[in-house]
Design a protein around this nucleic acid. Structure first.
Length: 239
DNA sequence: CGCCAGGCCGTGT
DNA sequence: ACACGGCATGGC
């Protein structure tokens, strides 16, 4: 039986993970943080540098609001002021309040209860929240709630595009996101299920690492761990 | 000064 | 279905 192109692409993406892991080592994203802090970070980092997010998190910590009760006690305007450094503070403050409201209304106000919900249903529920799109939902599921789901992002999109792993370049919309997520699931499908939580965790962090270093808009692939793979791609990409 | 950052959402074709 | 602009701040 002939090999499906999609499978070959999945194997190539798995190989890209291996190269990145060898080049950059463990990224240990969000290792010692509490789940709530991870969730706050996932919201605040939307189209925002992590440096700015850290300033907001510092403000929240100083206000004793890195815990659920502290967060509940904050007025909307107070929350807006604390997260101002990371931008879009009007939307993000309302979105964070909506998350806590959902947690209180449907999960006994406990992240442990939320985390125990079935992955697919929980994902759909998160996606109904304001300010939660596919990437934020998956980042919360993976990094805060311990569900083994892939996280796609702009950097992974660029990698997949440059390596031409999909028949057509993934769009910057929901359809493109879903295609990237499906490809990533396929890439780790041969790995034991017990390893996927860790693999998805590292892979997303590694995609960000290589993206920041080499996949910016002015692409400089000299010294990129993926340069060898790119040589097998049409050299007339204009990149 | 300009561009960008670990997106999402509303609106217009 | 797809494109585009707004959201806001700080780093470089």
């Amino acid at each position: 039986m002939k090999r499906l192109p999609q499978l070959a692409a999945a194997e190539r993406l798995r190989r890209i993970h291996d190269r990145l892991a060898a080049a950059y080592g463990p990224q240990h994203w969000w290792p010692a943080q509490t789940p709530l802090e991870v969730i706050l970070g996932a919201y605040l980092t939307q189209n925002t540098s992590w440096k700015a997010v850290e300033r907001s998190l510092d403000n929240l910590r100083a206000a004793n609001a890195l815990n659920l009760d502290g967060l509940r006690a904050l007025s909307l305007s107070k929350l807006q002021r604390l997260i101002q450094p990371s931008g879009f503070y009007t939307r993000k403050a309302a979105a964070l309040k909506a998350f806590v409201a959902l947690l209180d209304a449907e999960f006994d106000g406990l992240l442990e209860v939320m985390a125990a919900a079935p992955t697919a249903q929980l994902r759909e529920r998160l996606l109904t929240l304001p300010g939660v799109g596919a990437e934020t939902a998956d980042a919360i599921l993976l990094y805060a709630l311990g569900h083994p789901v892939p996280v796609a992002d702009e950097y992974l999109r660029r990698i997949v595009q440059r390596h031409q792993l999909l028949p057509s370049s993934p769009a910057k919309d929901r359809n493109g996101y879903d295609a990237l997520a499906a490809l990533t699931r396929a890439a780790f499908n041969a790995d034991p299920a017990s390893d996927r939580l860790h693999l998805y965790n590292e892979f997303h962090a590694l995609a960000v690492a290589v993206g920041k270093a080499h996949c910016g808009k002015s692409a400089n692939c000299a010294g990129c761990p993926l340069a060898a793979d790119l040589k097998f791609v049409s050299s007339s990409l204009g990149m």
